[in-house]
Design a protein around this nucleic acid. Structure first.
Length: 425
RNA sequence: GGAGAGGUGGCCGAGUGGCUUAAGGCGCACCCCUGCUAAGGGUGAAUAGGAGAAAUCUUAUCGAGGGUUCGAAUCCCUCCCUCUCCGCCA
């Protein structure tokens, strides 16, 4: 959520910034709600003050044994009027808040202009894609040919489309990737490992920005409770600091968490229908940092580097892309995507997305810290990124490490996690 | 699922209808004192709004939402959550 004061004071400047994100801020509506609210609030509070004064007078009069009949009767006129005004004011406040909850974060000044991914800016390329002296296969074909590989038909029988069953050494490779990623982030990058609930309540999803606007992307449970399956570990992990005031000495908080992620993928029916690229259920190791506001943009660089480290150790060619305003997520102020090389598609595909949310999530979550310099409590900043999406990493390994005979070579750093196995066959 | 106890500021905790402007303690920040340390003394400090040039004044917030009342942290109703015991269970 944006700072309501900021929106009141500089609506046009904010509207201009939000244009870059393809959002039309209704400044006229906001101004109207606000002026109505102001007048009503003033009137309501005057009445409340009046009521409080007279109630106190009654208390005193009673204690002194005086007659209270006169004051009592003068209250009647206030009561009804106050009730009406209170109700109207409440409605306006809800209307203002509801609108604000649907307004995206503003992009940082360093974010390039542009409406879609074609305007994204490539920052760097790492590694050189393999040249193959045979016809490359995509990961789906490779996986289905392996004895211990991927099976999409079985998953479709068990559940439906966009699921997969992994067998034998492929399942082990998937597990090895999780272990390798977590060990690296915990052991070398200083993150604390977390295991969190895979179902969350509405408040958590509002806190990180998935609700109220993106309900159709989520799986909602039909139980007694209104729980949702998490679309990313970002939701439970970031919401740990919801409604908290954090001491300076505790910052930065660095969490790494492996979870499954569940996404309905509504609205992407034509995209990536084959294979493991876009699934309703996938696993991810997520990095989350809760930081002081002054540091957040540096932390974004650092955290993106932590995700890059995984790709480099796996020797997977990738590129780093700075997203333009139009491609930015709802809550993000600045995002780097890491895209891994996929030989079968002859292009780079997203495998990690690292974002700084400034105080946007923190304000929705009421997550604050005590700033000793100002003496005040201020909102923290949140930063997160995938480190990495496990399913897509497995796809990248299948495709980049494929052999002419269809076997998959195991990357060097993963061998210790796989009993020294050389190839999946 | 059954029975019971709870939810108060950053934390602990008092508070059964009106001097509560939420006591007291801990922790925090600053200051004073003590040659260092420990201890002690003082001051400040919740959050979100509104009016005002400012000093300041004012409204709301005691898990959430309703209700009773001139007046609710306090009484009533509904819901959520936590803890204890019992049952069931990986």
């Amino acid at each position: 959520m944006l700072d309501p004061k900021w929106i009141r004071n500089e609506p046009d400047a904010i509207a201009a910034k939000l244009k870059a994100k393809k959002f039309d801020l209704d400044t006229a509506l906001l101004a109207q709600i606000d002026s109505e609210r102001k007048a009503l609030q003033h009137a309501t509070e005057t009445l409340q003050n009046e009521r409080n004064q007279r109630s106190k007078a009654i208390g005193k009069a009673k204690a002194a044994g005086e007659d209270i009949g006169e004051i009592l009767s003068s209250m009647d006129s206030i009561k009804g009027d106050l009730e009406n005004k209170k109700e109207a004011l409440g409605k306006l406040q809800v209307q203002f808040n509801d609108y604000l909850m649907g307004v995206p974060n503003v992009p940082d000044d360093s974010v390039p202009e542009g409406l879609d991914e074609s305007a994204n800016k490539e920052i760097l390329k790492w590694g050189t894609p393999n040249t193959f002296d045979f016809d490359v296969k995509d990961h789906g074909e490779l996986g289905e040919q392996l004895n211990q590989g991927l099976n999409f038909a079985d998953a479709a029988k068990l559940t439906g489309s966009r699921f997969v069953v992994m067998r034998g050494n492929t399942a082990t490779l998937h597990r090895a990737l999780i272990q390798f990623m977590l060990n690296t982030h915990v052991g070398e990058h200083g993150y604390t490992e977390l295991n969190v609930p895979y179902m969350v309540n509405k408040e958590s999803l509002q806190g990180t920005g998935q609700l109220p606007k993106f309900e159709e992307d989520l799986f909602k449970l039909h139980g007694d409770q209104e729980y949702y399956l998490i679309p990313t570990a970002e939701v439970p992990v970031t919401n740990l600091v919801r409604d908290k005031i954090i001491e300076k000495s505790e910052l930065p908080i660095k969490f790494a968490s492996h979870t499954p992620c569940f996404r309905s993928e509504a609205g992407s029916y034509g995209k990536d229908t084959k294979g493991m690229i876009r699934q309703h259920q996938f696993e991810k190791v997520e990095l989350v940092q809760i930081v002081k506001p002054a540091n957040s943009f540096n932390v974004l660089e650092e955290l993106t580097g932590h995700a890059e480290e995984i790709l480099q150790q796996l020797e997977l060619p990738y590129r780093k892309v700075l997203l333009c305003g139009g491609d930015l997520g709802f809550a993000s102020a600045k995002t780097y995507d890491l895209e891994v090389w996929l030989p079968s598609q002859d292009c780079y595909r997203e495998i990690s997305s690292c974002s700084v949310f400034t105080d946007f999530q923190a304000r929705r979550m009421q997550a604050r810290w005590r700033n000793p310099d100002s003496g005040n409590t201020e909102f923290v900043h949140t930063v997160n990124g995938s480190g990495l999406a496990v399913g897509r990493t497995l796809v990248a390994i299948f495709e980049n490490y494929q052999q002419a005979d269809g076997r998959i070579k195991i990357p060097t750093v993963l061998k210790p996690y796989m009993n020294g196995l050389e190839y999946i066959e």
